[in-house]
């Protein structure tokens, strides 16, 4: 982090250039999010999430799992830091999060090929979700 700040200070003279301003904004966001994470009490959040899982109406009333089942459990595993278990539980979670982050940054910065890259992310997600769903259903039979 400090190295990046020093690198940025070398460009301090022409900070008003739009490109450098974007770097500054991004850095502030990154640093701010680190401080914010430090303020959070992660253990309490994880226990709160584990106790207050939203129930899936399709699983509750009909008994078949829906396409999004496993998302919350997988997310909790990801927060805990168990990446592998999270991927096994719901493989589409991490690409989904990347896709949402890319979508937000695309709306802000308007990348040149952003739309088509989002499309490919979307296809990847759909393939992962559907394949995961069928494999899960087959394992019950």
């Amino acid at each position: 982090m400090k190295v990046i700040w020093i690198w940025l200070e070398s460009k301090w003279d022409n900070i008003n250039e739009p490109k450098n301003l974007i770097y500054l904004k991004l850095l502030c966001l990154l640093q701010g999010s680190f401080y914010f994470l430090g303020l959070l009490r992660m253990n309490e959040i994880i226990t709160f999430l584990e106790n207050n899982l939203l129930f899936c109406p399709s699983k509750e009333f009909i008994g078949i799992e829906c396409l999004g089942c496993g998302l919350q459990r997988s997310f909790i595993l990801l927060i805990k830091g168990e990446f592998l278990n999270s991927i096994i539980m719901y493989p589409a979670l991490i690409p989904m999060l990347i896709m949402i982050g890319y979508l937000v940054s695309h709306i802000y910065f308007d990348f040149k090929n952003g739309a088509s890259i989002l499309k490919y992310f979307y296809f990847l997600n759909i393939i992962l979700i559907v394949a995961n769903y069928f494999i899960k259903q087959l394992s019950y039979i």
Binding site: P57, S58, L67, I100, L103, I107, L118, Y122, I129
Partner: peptide
């Protein structure tokens, strides 16, 4: 941008019987 966001949300909202 709204169209793009809703298009992506349409797959994330695949719960609740679709």
């Amino acid at each position: 941008t709204l169209i793009l966001v809703f298009g992506i949300l349409s797959i994330l909202g695949c719960c609740c019987y679709g």
